[in-house]
């Protein structure tokens, strides 16, 4: 997809692209961290109709919402290129022995060889979590490894 980048001196940057419906969409990224989303009308193609404005925090939240469901998908694409490597997900249920305990305590990688590359928690994604990251009930772990390795992690988490 072509994203056109335009410099706005003194203000920031503007990104423009066209979606599959043919709408021209612009994103104004200010130096201050605020964003504005505009759509260009058909009557005057030079004028952006301002759809919404986001402050830094709101923009981060929106980016996470749009980005989260695609993470496991992307790992799946990645693992296709390496024979024998797979990606899987496993949920942390309320009865798991590792709820409210650090990820490191599972010793998942040393026991199975598979890596936990991300934790999806509600709308948040913790990418490459450290061993200190505390697991919560309802977390979804994204695991990369061999099929048996992933099954091993599932078993450890289930307890």
């Amino acid at each position: 997809m072509d994203v056109n980048e335009v410099l706005l001196p003194g203000v920031g940057l503007r990104y423009e692209f066209t979606n599959q419906d043919g709408d021209r969409i612009g994103v104004v990224a200010r130096r201050t961290g605020e964003f504005e989303l505009v759509v260009y009308g058909s009557e005057d193609p030079d004028q952006g109709r301002s759809m919404l404005r986001l402050n830094r925090e709101e923009a981060d939240t929106l980016a996470e919402i749009l980005g989260a469901p695609r993470i496991a998908e992307r790992f799946a694409d990645l693992t296709k290129e390496v024979p024998g490597l797979s990606a899987g997900q496993t949920g942390v249920r309320a009865g798991s022995p590792y709820v409210d305990r650090p990820l490191g305590h599972t010793r998942a990688r040393s026991r199975t060889g598979a890596s936990i590359v991300a934790i999806v928690r509600g709308e948040d994604v913790i990418a490459s979590p450290t061993p200190d990251e505390v697991l919560r009930a309802g977390d979804v772990l994204v695991v990369i490894g061999t099929r048996s390795g992933i099954a091993g992690v599932e078993k450890i988490i289930r307890g």
């Binding site: 335009v6 410099l7 706005l8 001196p9 003194g10 203000v11 503007r14 612009g26 104004v28 504005e36 505009v38 260009y40 193609p45 030079d46 004028q47 952006g48 301002s50």
Partner: peptide, 27 residues
């Protein structure tokens, strides 16, 4: 440049095609 930057913001013209030209002239 102070009043114009504020005007462009108030009138929501930052997304417009002509705006980089205006800002460049000011710079």
């Amino acid at each position: 440049s102070g009043i114009i930057a504020r005007l462009l913001d108030d009138l929501r013209r930052l997304g417009n095609r002509e705006t980089p030209a205006v800002l460049s002239v000011l710079v």
